[in-house]
Design a protein around this nucleic acid. Structure first.
Length: 109
RNA sequence: CCACACAUCCGGGCGGCCGCGGGCCGGUCCUGUCGGCAGGGCGGGCUCGAGGAAAGUCCGGGCUCCACGGAUCGGCGGUGGCGGGUAACACCCGCCGGGGGUGACCCCAGGGAAAGUGCCACAGAAACCACACCGCCGCCCGGCCCGGGGCAUCCCCGGGUGGCGGUAAGGGCGAACCGGUGCGGCAAGAGCGCACCGCGGCCCCGGCGACGGGGUCGGCACGGCAAACCCCACCGGGAGCAAGACCGAAUAGGCGCGCAGCGAUCCUUCGGGGAUCGGCGGCUCGAUCCGGCCGGCGCGCGGGUGGGUCGCUCGAGGCGCGUGGCGACACGCAGCCCCAGAGGAAUGGCCGCCCCCCUCCCCCAAGGGGACAGAACCCGGCUUACAGGGUGUGUGGCACA
RNA sequence: CGGAGCGUGGCGCAGCCUGGUAGCGCAUCAGACUGGGGGUCUGGGGGUCGCAGGUUCGAAUCCUGUCGCUCCGA
């Protein structure tokens, strides 16, 4: 799955729908390129670089495992919240699955 | 055995499955090409993949640009015992001096206060250059007061007050005040004299030196603060890999307006188009100068500013051994090793065994957890953060032989 | 990557350069004026000077380190 890099893509996703979970916020916005893409954000509020890196890696692993349930033709931006650092990974996985289901439901409706 | 000091090292280990970044090598498909081959897509194999601090960015360098090189001054900034190590340093080693500790050992911005300026609050008599508050001592006894004696408006004695002089030992103030202790001395005292200690000058000896030791003289004068200004000695151009280089038409070339187009000579397609010299202006923090280099200026329009490649990791490199040195370190070797190099940026998820920690004083079980922290041009240091542990040397104490 | 600045009562700021007393405004508390409120006047309380060392007799002030925040340039 391609990764979002440019600031413009992130700003575009910010205009889409928001799904809030304890560990992250998911933004979903249909894009022009047709493929499902993902982007990750870990701000300085999470702490120093070690913690920002770890938050981004866990979210990336989450996206990798849930790639099949992504919304086709849409950008998915994962914004890390502090809880992502110590939330058990199976719980995190359930959060992500629930968030993607909600996105598909709202978009399909 | 207990307590402590110093040095040094490690920074969870092993394995399985899925995934990520770099490099190398095959396979397959597509495009271009006569072909060799080049580019791209898909899918595999092998291999490497964070730290001792990667951090803070506090110093020192390499490297690159400012065209290049140099001198002086001023300013600014830094350093500050001595000797050495080093590419260099504010780092490191050894030594000296001072301070702390029973000791091993630790700490010190540690030049100059008789070059000058400034400050030293409050208290206190007085805060740095001299004075003298209380007190002590001597003299004057003239005046006044008190007490006592003599029969006495008068005389005598003692005390207080007062005046003149001596004194700096004592008191009181303070962070600090005519060096400290003792003896002699004196009316009382004082380096006034003497001894020891401290201080200062000179001489001798030892040491490369900081400095140390000894002698002699002085007779105490010379308080503290330079992390106050300052003085002295030494050092220092500026910017930073978004440096910068190459490819591409690409910080250029073009158009318009305004101002200016200086002097001399020459060429001329006669257009202020060009050349030489002078002048003027500019040239990487300031000023001046020398050589040198560059040069119409301003505003607007238009164009460009999202590309690719290099710089980019093999280096003052790490390990081992030997030699020299107290040591920092240096030198040498048929020796061994290659250890991240990125597109805004790769290490993650799950599981098993072992190790350690926590919950509760111990044991078992169960549960939870794994210090500080993430490379971005590269080195040498410093500083700061850090669970826990290993090794070596030494000191003090206790016990035993 | 480079540079500059700021942390002082609840809030906003002086004081720092040139070291000895921490001050101002708003807010807050008490009293007075008023029937009550507002407002005015008078009086009062409240500060580890971000933190840790050092220099000094003495540090908010000087020096070093450290933490946090803000801004600027490429």
């Amino acid at each position: 799955m391609p990764t979002l890099k440019s600031r413009r893509d992130f700003l575009a996703a910010d205009r889409g729908m928001r799904i809030v979970t304890p560990a992250f916020i998911l933004l979903v916005q249909p894009n022009a390129c047709g493929a499902a893409r993902a982007g990750f954000t870990a701000s300085r509020r999470l702490g120093p670089h070690v913690q920002r890196n770890r938050a981004r890696r866990r979210l990336r692993e989450l996206a990798r495992l849930l790639k099949a349930e992504a919304v086709a033709g849409a950008d998915h931006v994962f914004i890390a919240r502090p809880a992502v650092l110590d939330r058990p990974f199976p719980v995190l996985l359930a959060d992500g699955r629930r968030a993607l289901a909600a996105a598909r439901r709202r978009l399909g409706a």
